[in-house]
Each structure stands twice: as C-alpha cells, then as structure tokens.
C-alpha cells in the first residue's frame, strides 16, 4: 500500500495551493469581482516566499512578510477595480501576464539566474509529523507529514463555513455583490467590501504560491504554478458558493494533479498524466453546464462596445 500512501500524501500537498487559492477566489465571487488573476498572484507568492526566505532565513518569517506584501498588492488591485473602474477580468488577465513576466524580471535582475533559483539558504517549511496517526497506513499519508499551510487551509475551510452562516462580514461581502444599494442604505461601504475581498484573495493566493515554492520544495522555478491558479478558478466556479463543495472539488483536482506526477511513464506518457487535472476540470465544466438549472456564475467579462 506504499503507493497509495505516497499518492494520497502527494494529493494532499497538491490540494493545498488549489484549495487556498479557490477559497480566496470564492470571496471575490461574492462581491461579483471574480478574480481570474489567481495564477499571477500565486507566482508572486511563490517568488516572494523564496526571496524573503533567503533574506530572513526562516520559512515562517517569509510567510508573514509575503502575506503583508500580498495584502498591499490586494489593496492596490482592489482600488484599481473600484476607484479606477478597471474591469476586473482585464485586470486579472493582466495580472497573470504581469506575474509571469515580473517574477522572471526579478529573478534575473536580483539573483542573476535564469530558469530556477535553488540555494541552500532557502528555508523549507517544517513537515508536521503527527504521532500515532502518522503510523497508520493510508490515514497517515492523508493527515500527517504536511506543512502548516496544509492544516491552515483546512482550518480556513471550517472558518469560511462558519463565517458564511454566522458572520456579518460575509453578509456584507455578499450584499456588496448582490444588492450594493441595499448595503449602502444599511450603512455599509460597498467599495470597502470589494477591496477587502481582493485583499483576502491575494493573501490566500500568496500562501498558495508559498506552499508550492517553500512548502513542497525549497526552490523557485519560472512558471512553477503551471495553471493551478486556473484550476482554482474552476474549483471556485464549480462550487457555486458552497464551501464544502469547494473543498471537495479542490481535493479532486489535487488528487488528479498528484496522479499526473505519480503515474508511471510506462502506464501513460507524462504529458497525458499532466493533462488529467485540466481534463477533469473541463469535463466538470461541461457536466455542470448540463446539469445546472440555475444561471451559472459567468466570469465578469467586459462589454467591449464603443464608449
């Protein structure tokens, strides 16, 4: 059963960034500013996780500073799409291209390397081995031996479920998307809520990226998020606002990504194995469209007619 252990453990590790980013994306869908730039935000998180890690020599320290930087970036992004009325779809697509370009720019200008940054000085988040449970086959790989970010992601699922039911903030966020006038009348601030959603999304994407660079590995490579951000967008859309569904879908995507890595070359060519998560997402999208009775979440694409 060793392969199953390895597969499940790897699946949980892949689930973490998808789940974190999807939880962030979900919040932006409440304010009707669905952020399609997760991929870009994640690659920044991955880069700065490594960069700050090298600087500080501590994985956790790097996470804290990356989170702060992400909050500032989210604030800027939020201001751009609210005060400056940049279409959020355009901003998201630009963010993806910007993330890919800017991280390479920084990599080459700060460290003078191309392709990948690997250094003994890059810290790695500690793997938390849970005693007793860790020794149980199957369950051990699933539950034990992950970074703090994996556990945090699942705690955040619980927190989000609770917050959706009980918290005022979530109610305000949803109102800012569905009934902005009502929120204004009730004394809320629509713009602040929309910005808050983006700040939260950026912070979670930064964690997702850091998990990939200093959680799973201790190096940064160009384009290392390789489309997982888009898979997370898909997960957020598929969940249709249900947090537990979102967690389940993210797990499916995480397991399919793990399958892509774990499947032996003799079984199928690696390119086909790597395709699995995207194929699963695409098939899921079609199934969702065929079975759903309500209107789906459409990505807020801009109206392009002449102004």
């Amino acid at each position: 059963m060793d392969w199953l252990d390895a597969f499940l453990g790897s699946g949980m590790r892949f689930t973490t960034p998808i789940l974190l980013a999807a939880l962030g994306c979900l919040v932006t869908s409440w304010t009707r500013d669905l952020n399609v730039g997760l991929e870009g935000a994640m690659i920044f998180g991955a880069f700065f996780g490594v960069a700050f890690g090298l600087e500080l020599g501590s994985g956790l320290g790097a996470i804290v500073v990356t989170l702060l930087a992400a909050a500032v970036a989210g604030l800027l992004f939020g201001i751009l799409i609210t005060t400056y009325r940049v279409n959020v779809f355009v901003a998201g697509i630009v963010l993806n291209v910007f993330g890919a370009g800017a991280t390479v720019f920084l990599l080459r200008s700060i460290y003078g390397v191309k392709g990948a940054l690997a250094d003994d000085g890059i810290p790695r988040l500690a793997r938390i081995e849970i005693p007793v449970i860790g020794d149980i086959p199957v369950l051990g790989g699933l539950v034990s031996g992950h970074t703090v970010l994996t556990y945090l992601a699942w705690v955040l699922v619980g927190v989000t479920v609770w917050a959706v039911r009980n918290s005022v903030v979530v109610r305000h966020l949803k109102a800012a998307g569905e009934h902005p006038e009502a929120l204004e009348t009730a004394g809320g601030n629509v713009q602040r809520m929309r910005i808050l959603a983006q700040v939260w999304c950026f912070m979670l994407c930064a964690l997702a990226g850091a998990q990939m660079s200093i959680g799973q590995l201790s190096l940064f490579t160009e384009g290392m998020t390789s489309g997982l951000g888009f898979v997370a967008v898909a997960a957020a859309i598929f969940s249709r606002g249900n947090v537990l569904w979102l967690a389940a879908i993210s797990t499916v995507f995480g397991l399919s990504s793990a399958a892509g890595v774990q499947i032996n070359e003799e079984v199928m060519p690696p390119q086909f194995a790597q395709m699995i998560p995207y194929v699963v997402a695409l098939v899921g999208l079609v199934v969702l469209a065929r079975t759903s009775k309500v209107d789906q979440v459409r990505i807020a694409t801009p109206q392009l007619q002449a102004d």
């Binding site: 898979v231 995207y278 695409l282």
Partner: peptide, 15 residues
C-alpha cells in the same frame, strides 16, 4: 449547452 467559454478556452490551452 452554455458551457462558459472563458473557462473552457482557458483550460483548453493546457490540454
């Protein structure tokens, strides 16, 4: 079928 083309074309890239 109303399959959102933004997401489907996005995912099709990788495939």
């Amino acid at each position: 079928w109303g399959v959102d083309e933004v997401l489907s074309t996005l995912l099709s890239n990788y495939i």
